[in-house]
Nucleic acid binder design. Structure first.
Lengths: 127, 127
DNA sequence: GTCAAAGTTTACGTTAACGTAAAGGTAATG
DNA sequence: CATTACCTTTACGTTAACGTAAACTTTGAC
């Protein structure tokens, strides 16, 4: 009794729908070297790995990352664990990314506080 | 005995330096209606209010806000408290902004976790 | 008075991230 | 077998957010 594990695949249209974007955009990401789907004849075949990459791209976009920046992150995760200098570079990149995210986090906290303040002013004004 | 309170003012160069940007950019924000500095002859004179607006713009940029979006926020804070429909619109805007920021916040948390995971993998790999 | 530093306007150039259109291939459906 | 729904490539168009250059004024320092 064997368990059949078929690798999940996706069409470009499915992914466009799932991530609320367009096929044009997804092909563009391929142009820019962010994904490299396989082909079945002419047609692009996306793996779950491709799908995750697109998810990462979209998350990046919501945070204001350029595609180039997202690509750096993607490449970061795809570094084959080889030599030490590579590793060092990766760790530095991780540090930089983390710092950026933490800065954004405090920016968000401040903006949330300011929004709340303003909301209260307006609500008080309504009475 | 009177206390002299001189309103702080800034030149475009000073602000460009403080926010690590260019005078061109600041003039551009004026073009787009985000700030309206006074003039002393030809020269622009920036108030502390203008300075705060620029601060908000920069924070917005770090979070991936377009200038149009930042302008909405700025206008939001500048709504003269008048009629009720205005107030309602303001509160709706506040809600939308908050939701966006909260989404970004969770995006950040996820990315931080993923970074940490990857960092650990790489570090383990180095041994 | 002239020189340098900072300010001004006008205007064309540039990059990122797709949008949009045209022209065509393929596969299931009635 | 023709229509419909997706897929493909190629290529030009568009918007945001300034960069860059040119040509000119203003002002404090020497």
């Amino acid at each position: 009794m064997t368990i059949q594990m078929t690798a999940q695949i996706f069409t470009i249209g499915e992914l466009a729908q799932e991530f609320d974007t367009t096929t044009r955009a997804i092909r563009f990401y391929e142009d820019q070297g962010l994904i490299s789907p396989l082909r079945e004849g002419q047609k692009r075949i996306y793996s779950t790995a491709d799908r995750i990459t697109i998810k990462l791209i979209m998350r990046g976009k919501r945070l204001g990352f350029s595609l180039a920046e997202s690509k750096e992150l993607i490449d970061l995760y795809n570094t084959e664990g080889d030599n030490r200098t590579q590793h060092v570079r990766v760790l530095e990149q991780v540090k930089a990314s983390r710092e950026r995210l933490l800065q954004q986090k405090t920016d968000i906290e401040i903006m949330l506080l300011e929004l709340e303040e303003h909301e209260n002013r307006v609500k008080a004004d309504m009475k």
